[in-house]
Design a protein around this nucleic acid. Structure first.
Lengths: 209, 209
DNA sequence: CCGTACCTCGTCCAAAAGGAGGAGGTACAC
DNA sequence: GTGTACCTCCTCCTTTTGGACGAGGTACGG
């Protein structure tokens, strides 16, 4: 029996996961949470085998932070990211945060079962589009953004100035400028506008809402 | 009994909707489709009271086109858009295509029931964030971009500098700057980065090949 | 221990962009 | 004709970015 904790702020998605996992005797949904704080708390109390984590869980602690907390404080819990976007930046950051796998929400039930089983055994699973993003990145290592750079690019793409970036991330404007220059080189551009456009092309942006 | 057709390419979402609607005797899920073509065909055959339509249903006919087809050929069917994004452009386009309502996927079951009941009676429903987008737009009609401004914003969003814009459009940099200032005021921003981000949010950008 | 990658911060300078204000031209509706 | 909306261009000024250095700190694997 594999014990699963759901962290997702969409009622419909949680209901779907309950229905799909409930139809298989090998899985048991032991808890649900709709935000990062509650999710982390429940994970540490319930100690599930696998956490199914949505990355876009709204206000407060986001999915990446929640993943980091859980894997840091309870290394035996496997965090399987289950989300809508294949944002390049998110993948890098959440895997860096300790996630065991990354599934897109258009996965079939069979893929979901397999991924949870694999995660419970500690094996990694990536959705095909996600895997291809990472593979492409391996083949062209010079374009690989570091986690920090990916984070900054994502904020950049939401329209922040250097000053706003520095205050958001609690570092100096100089640091922001340095990161941006590195990002520009890796993206092959020389203005922030082109970097934002390129980020959009590469699907590195996050939608609001 | 309200007969509902689901059009969504996510297994998990369809399972969730089945579970949530199935718990209420007033609703019956009479069919499911995972793409626009199949969805339109089923709608015209099954003649449900309400279609729950995801806008991002991948390749082929998209959600807006499918909505237009269904409402054009079977005006008695109410199309309730049920999707993740509150993209400004999508909302306007799909309502123009004849959708009766627009719900975000983070709606609660109660909101979903109410919206389907309302749609079955022909009444419109909009999620709060969606309604606020439309209201804001109604209240500030001066935010409409002129054709020239829209053209410049689109080029801007591809990363061009003022000089590149001026050369592309055969006008002076001064002219570009003037247009940009007008665009900034209409978009409520004061930097090109924020304007690009805003353009992305409003779906005003074009993807290059 | 050493090398490497990453994140951080600094200076100095040049280029680009933002902002205010004015202004001439066309096209079109009333 | 008058008014309005739009596109075009100008000057003068401040602020922001981009670019080219260097450099200290941490973390990690060989």
């Amino acid at each position: 029996m594999t014990r699963v904790l759901l962290i997702d702020d969409h009622d419909v998605v949680r209901a779907g996961l309950r229905a799909i996992l409930g139809s298989q005797p090998e899985f048991e949904v032991v808890g649900e949470a709709t935000n990062g704080d509650s999710g982390v708390r429940q994970a540490l109390v319930l100690l599930p085998d696998v956490v199914l984590m949505d990355l876009s869980i709204g206000a407060g602690m986001d999915g990446v932070q929640a993943t980091r907390r859980i894997t840091a404080e309870a290394p035996d819990i496997r965090v399987l990211v289950f989300t809508t976007y294949d944002s390049d930046a998110d993948i890098v950051r959440v895997i860096d945060a300790g996630a065991t796998g990354y599934l897109l929400k258009d996965s079939t039930p069979a893929e979901l079962y397999a991924a949870i089983r694999a995660a419970a055994r500690g094996q990694a699973t990536l959705s095909a589009p996600v895997a291809s993003v990472l593979l492409k990145r391996m083949q062209q290592p010079e374009t690989a953004l570091t986690p920090r750079e990916a984070e900054i690019l994502e904020l950049l793409a939401s329209g922040l100035s250097n000053r706003e970036l520095s205050r958001t991330l609690y570092v100096s404007e100089t640091t922001i400028k340095t990161h941006l220059l590195h990002i520009y080189r890796k993206l092959g551009v020389d203005t922030r506008s082109a970097a934002i456009a390129e980020a959009g092309q590469r699907g590195l942006t996050r939608r609001r809402g």
